[in-house]
Amino acid sequence: LQAFIKTLTGKTFTVEMEPSDTIENLKAKIQDKEGIPPDQQRLIFAGKQLEDGRTLSDYNIQKESTLHLVL
């Protein structure tokens, strides 16, 4: 599935991932794409901060969901 990552500066980019991917995997993909170390990334979806060990499906993240990236 493709999801949108929106930063506080208003920049939006897309990442490809599977519902079974962990938040940790997602942070690694963001690092590959944007060069931001995972330990500096905080991802917010539906008002909740996402925990590394959980999966996208745990948070009911669907295709074309928008996640907010806070540094």
Rank of each mutant, 00 (worst) to 15 (best):
A46M: 14
T55F: 08
T22Y: 06
L1N: 06
D39V: 09
H68L: 15
D58T: 04
F45D: 01
I23L: 05
P19Y: 13
E18L: 15
Q49Y: 13
V70I: 13
I61R: 03
H68Y: 15
K27Y: 02
P37D: 07
G47N: 05
G10W: 03
T9E: 12
L69Y: 01
L71V: 13
E16G: 07
D39L: 09
K29F: 06
T7S: 07
K48P: 02
I23H: 01
N60Q: 08
T66W: 07
E16H: 09
Q31I: 02
G10C: 05
T66M: 08
P38E: 06
G47C: 05
L69M: 07
Q49W: 13
F45H: 10
D21G: 07
L1A: 05
A3D: 03
E34W: 15
N60D: 09
D52A: 07
G35E: 02
I44P: 00
E18Y: 14
K63N: 15
N25A: 14
I61C: 03
T22V: 04
E64I: 06
A28I: 13
P37I: 04
K29A: 08
L26F: 03
L50K: 01
Q31F: 15
A46D: 14
T9S: 14
G53V: 06
P37W: 05
A28N: 11
L26H: 01
L67A: 02
A46P: 01
M17S: 04
G47S: 04
S65M: 11
Q41C: 05
A28V: 12
T7H: 06
P19C: 06
T55G: 03
F4C: 10
F4R: 13
T66P: 07
D32E: 15
Q41L: 05
K11P: 05
L43S: 00
A28D: 06
D52L: 05
E64Q: 10
E51N: 06
D52E: 08
A28M: 13
K33D: 03
E51F: 05
M17A: 09
I44A: 04
I5E: 02
Q31M: 13
Q40D: 08
N25C: 09
P37R: 08
P38V: 15
F13Q: 00
K11L: 09
S20G: 12
Y59H: 03
G10V: 03
L1P: 03
S57M: 11
V70L: 14
I30W: 00
S57W: 06
G53A: 10
D58L: 02
S65F: 13
S65P: 08
K29V: 06
K63V: 09
I36K: 02
G47Y: 04
K48C: 08
I61W: 08
S65Y: 08
V70S: 07
D21Y: 05
I61D: 04
I23S: 01
T12P: 04
A3E: 03
R54T: 06
H68V: 14
Q31W: 15
D21P: 01
Q31P: 00
K29L: 09
D58S: 12
A3Y: 15
L43E: 00
V70Q: 09
N25V: 13
K33Q: 13
T12V: 13
Q2K: 14
D21F: 05
S65I: 13
I36N: 02
G35D: 04
L50Y: 01
A46S: 08
F13H: 02
Q41N: 02
G10A: 03
M17V: 15
